[in-house]
């Protein structure tokens, strides 16, 4: 019954009902990230506004429940936030994912993304959870240039 801790209800909910999915215009940067070992992929667009505000994050892709739910949770988190705020969360999320189950994650910072804590115990799946988040980081960097 180990896997139950990975497949949190919240993750399954996001997988079945992804938020903000679909590519939208306008956008400042578009990136395409793949996970070559498993074939998961995501295309992500970022539109930034004045004062470092994130105006829209849109995405499309295919992959396992973890990778797709992580994109949906990321979308919700970026809504109404600034680039700096979201990058701080990306950093905390990355730290959590790379912890091999050793830390629980700061719920204050992570919000719903804390539900992925169980994934960090599965080295093979960590990259699934990180796919959309790394794509976001990349897209934001390209947008700010």
């Amino acid at each position: 019954m180990i896997a139950e801790s990975m497949y949190q209800e919240l993750i399954l909910e996001h997988y079945k009902h992804p938020q903000g999915r679909g590519l939208r215009d306008p956008y400042d940067a578009e990136v395409h990230h793949v996970n070559p070992t498993c074939g998961d992929e995501i295309t992500m667009r970022v539109k930034l506004g004045d004062g470092g505000k994130v105006e829209d994050v849109s995405y499309d892709g295919q992959g396992c429940s973890i990778s797709q739910a992580a994109a949906s949770v990321l979308y919700e988190l970026t809504e109404g936030s600034t680039v700096d705020e979201t990058l701080a969360v990306v950093e905390e999320f990355t730290r959590l994912m790379q912890s091999r189950g050793q830390i629980e994650g700061d719920e204050e910072v992570l919000g719903d993304a804390v539900a992925f804590a169980g994934v960090s115990k599965y080295p093979a799946r960590v990259k699934c959870a990180l796919l959309a988040w790394m794509a976001y980081k990349d897209a934001v960097m390209r947008s700010s240039k």
Partner: peptide, 14 residues
């Protein structure tokens, strides 16, 4: 509707 990675994970873990 279920990705093979999820299938494999649950088959193994449980």
């Amino acid at each position: 509707g279920i990705h093979p990675h999820d299938v494999g994970q649950i088959l193994d873990d449980e």
